[in-house]
Structures are given as C-alpha cells and as structure tokens.
C-alpha cells in the first residue's frame, strides 16, 4: 500500500493526465454523435467477431440439449401429423356413412422422443435399448420409428429404459402393405443381411413391381397406417408356391440410429378387448 502511494505521488502528473484524458475521450464519445457512432461501430466490429467465436464454442456445449429439444419437437409434430391423418380418415368415413358421429377423442396417437443407447444388427435376434422408460410413459407394445421409417416394437420397459425388438429379429412379424396396390403381407427377417427384410404372403396375382414402396398396413394397432418401411428390392415365386417371396430394402439404416420416436395408440386396449371377443365365435 505504501509502495502504491509512493507510486501515485511520484507519477502523480502522469496519473492525472491519464484520468483527465480518459474523461476527455469519454466526453467526446458521450456527447458527439459522430464520434459515438464511430466508437460503437468499431467496438462492435471487435466485440462481434469475438462474440461469434464465443458463441461457436458455446454452441458445442448446448448441442446435446438442442438435439433433445429438436427430437421432442419432431415427436410433437409427428403426433399432430398422425392425428390429422386419422382425423381425415374419420371425415371420409363420415362422408360415406352419414349417420356416424365424430367421437370426442379424435386424437388417437401420442408420440414420444427417445434416444437409442444400445443397439445391435449383427446378431440373429437383434434388440435395442432406449433411454426412456415407464416413467416417461413408454409402454410395451408401442411402435418405434426412426427418421426414415419403422424400426421395431417395444417389448419390455423398466423405470428409465425400454427394450425394443428391432425389425431385425426373427420373431418380429409386422403387417405391411404395398403402398401402390394395397396388397398386404407379413414382414419378417431371416437373420442374414441387416439391410434386407423379407415380405411374404402376397399372392402371386398381386400387382407388384420393383421399387414399390412398402408401408405399414395399420391392421395391427402398433403402427398407424402408411408409415414408410422400405422398397421392393427383388421378388420371386417359389416353385409350386402361391405367394411372392419379396426382399425389401429398408429405408431406415438400423445400424446408425440415434433418435427414434415411440408411437402410442391411445385406444389400443379397447381395440384388443374388442378383438378378443372374436375368439368366442371360433
């Protein structure tokens, strides 16, 4: 402190000069519009370039959160889209069948966003693990779709995680149809190429071409109607058979999945209950 005071006494005039000069420059900037503009312009030029660099670095820290936010937003948009589709279907059916009334619960689907945290494609029975569980509202039987197409079905859930039976599972059976001609069949996997799944049960008189798009049929309530799955890669009729054996190339690359969406049909139990009645008449 004493040294500092000595310094002040010794360089008193210089410090006074600095103080007064600073005050002058402050005054110049404060009261003269022209200098003020120049000051703001040039200081912003410097700070802006620094600020943009800081932002670039900061953006990296928030990327994870932004990704999650975007996934959530996508889930919301997907919910809306699916509900609009089902609403449109309802309206069409009202037109054809006038005495029907629109039921109050038009929203039929709810979509959750989740992240794949464990995945495999090389085994015979492939599963994947998602980072959302029963606490976030995931239920067994929910459909899982990726950004490009169908991925699989939730089989089990714990509190914070859920297990998904991928399309690349020999027990996976999915009801699908040809988008163009509406013939439907069953999708399954034989456990070889993770990019190709097999579509059976399409009768050999069906209208079928290469590169036809395969979409979900909507018969099983797991997936709404019309979600993309893949395209026809190759097809043939087995000797003496009645149906095509079709190789379907999947849209979704199951080995590079990150964010997925879980689709829940809100009236699933109601439909299952109703369909269970059918056993009475067998």
């Amino acid at each position: 402190m004493i040294r500092f005071l000595q310094l002040v006494v010794q360089n008193g005039s210089f410090i006074l000069f600095l103080i007064l000069q600073t005050y002058c420059i402050y005054q110049v900037i404060q009261y003269n519009q022209r200098q003020k503009d120049i000051y703001i312009y040039s200081s912003q030029k410097w700070t802006n370039s620094l600020q943009s660099k800081i932002n670039t670095v900061n953006n990296y820290f928030s990327l994870r959160k932004k990704n999650d936010d975007l996934a959530q937003e996508n889930a919301n948009l997907l919910t809306q889209q699916l509900n609009h589709q089902s609403l449109l279907n309802t309206i069409v059916s009202i037109d054809t069948n006038k005495q029907n009334k629109i039921d109050s619960g038009l929203a039929r689907y709810h979509v959750l966003a989740a992240k794949v945290i464990n995945n495999s494609v090389s085994k015979v029975n492939n599963t994947m693990t998602l980072d959302k569980g029963s606490k976030a509202g995931v239920l067994p039987g929910m459909g899982v779709v990726g950004p490009h197409g169908v991925v699989g079905i939730v089989t089990d859930t714990s509190e914070h995680f859920s297990l998904v039976m991928s399309l690349l599972h020999t027990k996976s059976k999915l009801s699908v149809k040809l988008k163009r001609s509406h013939f439907f069949g069953t999708l399954s996997w034989k456990g070889r190429n993770p990019e190709i799944v097999e579509l059976n049960d399409i009768q050999k008189y069906a209208d079928l071409k290469l590169n036809d798009t395969i979409v979900t049929s909507g018969f099983s309530i797991v997936f709404p109607e019309g979600l993309p799955i893949g395209t026809v890669d190759a097809f043939q009729v087995e000797a003496g058979g009645f149906s095509y054996s079709i190789n379907v190339k999947l849209f979704e690359n199951l080995s590079a999945l990150d964010h997925v969406y879980l689709i829940n049909h809100l009236y699933k139990s109601e439909k299952n209950q109703l369909e269970n009645l059918s056993t009475k008449y067998e």
Binding site: Q21, C24, Q27, V28
Partner: peptide, 11 residues
C-alpha cells in the same frame, strides 16, 4: 465539442 479541446490541451 466536449472533450476535444481539453483532450488536445492535455496531450
């Protein structure tokens, strides 16, 4: 012109 003359005189 607040500050201009004062600053120059100081210099």
């Amino acid at each position: 012109s607040p500050g201009v003359h004062a600053g120059a005189c100081l210099w």
